[in-house]
Design a binder for these strands. Structure first.
Length: 274
DNA sequence: CTATTTGTTTATCC
DNA sequence: AGGATAAACAAATA
């Protein structure tokens, strides 16, 4: 398992990074929209309407919330993107030749804005309404770095799911938007909590530490990855978690990799006890 | 050739 | 109803 491959999994900061790749095409008329309708990622989308409405228009803004991406057109319509497991957003100079996994391309201002997804686990949404934001954008949980995500909010969520394993609930996008497998492992490792711990068994000080660590890992990830996708320092679990025989950067012990809550999970047996 | 891996959603069972 | 589990998705890789 290569590090390169794990780096492609889009979580909070990777999503911000990808969304920025399209900035180069904002505020220029879209000369042409190319897409492969009928693909799974367009399920439920009126692709004909999307093409007809976006052609000739300008894109005004790109926003992200957790793993959700919304591209706002000048007419108020919303193009939604979710990168799934293998989705990417990139810009290529024109003329652009469509690759086999390029499902959507918007040609604007000398660039093709491309949504590429080899495994089709991603999703494109389209909302032609111009009055208010679509439900998939409106009904989102508080951003983990916003003031709305308070220690009390975290405690309430944990209380509601006190029987679950901590790893499972942290991966739940309805409560922790943007967290994915590597971020959750990083958070639990820094907080010294075993991924299989039952939520209800956490002490008050562990919950407080968990809160601070969630915010810390979100901020660190954005700082390192969102601008230029730098490689995180070796002091993070990140660089060691996929390697067989990888060692805990804090204690040097061999890391454990097992399935927890249905997901491949890495932890340090020295600092994370059940 | 087959088995495995990977994240999310959906379905099903308890 | 919350939670566990498995399947499905598609393609690369071992």
């Amino acid at each position: 398992m290569s590090i390169e491959r794990t780096r492609e999994m889009p979580e909070l900061a990777e999503v911000v990074y990808y969304a920025r790749q399209w900035q180069v095409g904002l505020n220029r008329p879209i000369a042409r929209v190319r897409l492969h309708s009928g693909k799974r990622i367009f399920r439920g989308v009126d692709t004909g309407g999307l093409v007809a409405t976006l052609t000739g228009q300008r894109l005004r803004r790109i926003e992200t919330h957790g793993k959700q991406i919304r591209v706002l057109a000048e007419g108020g319509q919303s193009l939604g993107l979710h990168l799934g497991m293998s989705g990417r957003m990139l810009a290529e100079s024109l003329p652009y030749e469509s690759g086999p996994h390029d499902h959507l391309a918007l040609e604007a201002g000398g660039h093709a804005l491309i949504f590429r997804d080899p495994r089709l686990f991603g999703r494109v949404r389209w909302d032609a309404g111009t009055e208010r934001a679509p439900a998939w954008w409106r009904d989102l949980p508080p951003d983990l770095l916003s003031e709305c995500f308070t220690p009390e909010a975290l405690r309430a969520t944990l209380e509601r799911h006190h029987r679950a394993q901590i790893k499972a609930i942290l991966l739940n996008q309805a409560h922790f938007p943007g967290l994915g497998n590597w971020m959750v492992d990083e958070i639990l490792w820094r907080a010294g909590i075993h991924p299989g711990r039952r939520v209800g068994s956490l002490t008050t000080s562990q919950v407080n530490r968990l809160y601070r660590t969630i915010r810390e890992v979100c901020a660190d990830a954005l700082e390192v990855i969102a601008d230029d996708w730098s490689t995180p320092p070796d002091s993070w679990l990140f660089n060691h978690r996929w390697k067989d025989g990888g060692r805990c950067p804090k204690t040097g012990v061999i890391l454990v990799r097992e399935t927890v809550a249905g997901r491949t999970t890495c932890w340090s047996p020295a600092c994370q006890k059940l």
